[in-house]
Design a protein around this nucleic acid. Structure first.
Lengths: 198, 198
DNA sequence: CCGAAGTGGATATGCCATATCCGCTTATGT
DNA sequence: ACATAAGCGGATATGGCATATCCACTTCGG
């Protein structure tokens, strides 16, 4: 799975790792709009060094986040094993949002609909598909309303995500409150019969 | 309330109106990041003409949106008259989101927490206060949960707002669906038990 | 008909991200 | 130890973009 790169000199390999680590930190803190110069400086390296290994920001971001998304995908797939689809869906969403809350770059990646490179796009698609199955199962199990579908996934994630960059967001993780609110709204209940989208 | 300006020549006054109208359209379509050059061109005027009347984009945006926000504020105050606070709150939120859905610039203004000029800031504060009262009343009337406060207003608006710039947003106004979902989640219900005790 | 007011838009200015280039340093294996 | 390829740093070229100005020309209004 790790495509073989042409064997770097030992110091170069070391700097490559430093670059990646710095990129993780910088992207997490300042988002994807941070420059490769920022990353290089934060890694204690020259700009040229970074550009030698990664042709541009996109390539660097891809290496940083592809694995990350794959992990999420794996978690989503694993969640499909459990018997209770609703609880599984809830757990996956909480897991995703926890990651997003700690990583501005990841948030931007999740948010932007298109334009991401192939491995990222693939991982995203996989996640969506797994969640789609969870939603379908939860619906069949009567845990959530009839009219909830995969199409609701993106909006829901986007909504919770938007709470994250609210200035007032204090030390408490406000997003948990709103995720709970929304998940609650999805549930079927005596008083909330499945209703059609207006 | 309208501060007296030093009486413009008739053509100048006309161009001023053209500029404002163009600004409304351009800001609505492309957001506040549109340039004054854009606005001037769209108004069929030279850049200099626009800059003579409005020192910068902020000043222009203020004139365009101050009244807009005042209207919303008025609507919110009017809503306080009705007997059913929950319905009133719902109506106000729907009204605000309808405006926002049609105006990208307004959305950006709503979203950005600070840094807006005095009249804008005042109007916003007024809106928040009125809505705060509606929320308090709705709570007292037992229509919404005990733990909902004014502090939930901004997150809720932000969440719905975020749905608006979702690329997949088709011709249907998806935001109505999610606003309903959230409002529904605020309600007190004769319990909303999970199908299974967890 | 004259002077003040207004106009247009090319352009100066400044900012910022991207990416390159090349003289110097370091690793590596023989 | 030495030769040589690989790697390094970071000043700087490049280009894009928004802001704002300036001034020769036009138009308004008394």
């Amino acid at each position: 799975m790790s495509q073989e790169r042409p064997a770097l000199r030992r110091d170069a390999e070391h700097n490559r790792r430093r670059t990646l680590e710095a990129a993780r930190e910088v992207f997490a803190a300042r988002g994807l709009q941070a420059t490769l110069n920022d990353v290089a400086h934060h890694a204690g390296l020259g700009v040229g060094t970074v550009y030698r290994r990664f042709p541009n920001k996109e390539a660097l971001a891809e290496v940083v986040y592809a694995g990350r998304l794959e992990d999420i995908h794996a978690a989503a797939r694993a969640a499909l094993e459990g018997p209770d689809a609703y609880q599984a869906l809830k757990a996956v969403l909480e897991h995703v949002m926890e990651q997003a809350a700690a990583d501005r770059g990841l948030r931007e990646l999740i948010r932007r609909g298109a334009g991401d490179s192939e491995p990222i796009a693939r991982a995203r698609q996989g996640i969506v598909e797994s969640c789609g199955r969870l939603i379908a199962r939860a619906r069949e199990q009567g845990a959530i309303r009839d009219d909830i579908t995969v199409a609701d996934l993106a909006p829901i994630v986007t909504m919770i995500d938007s709470v994250l960059d609210l200035p007032s967001a204090g030390p408490v993780q406000a997003w948990r409150r709103y995720l709970a609110l929304i998940l609650d709204g999805l549930r079927t209940g005596p008083e909330r019969p499945a209703r059609r989208p207006s």
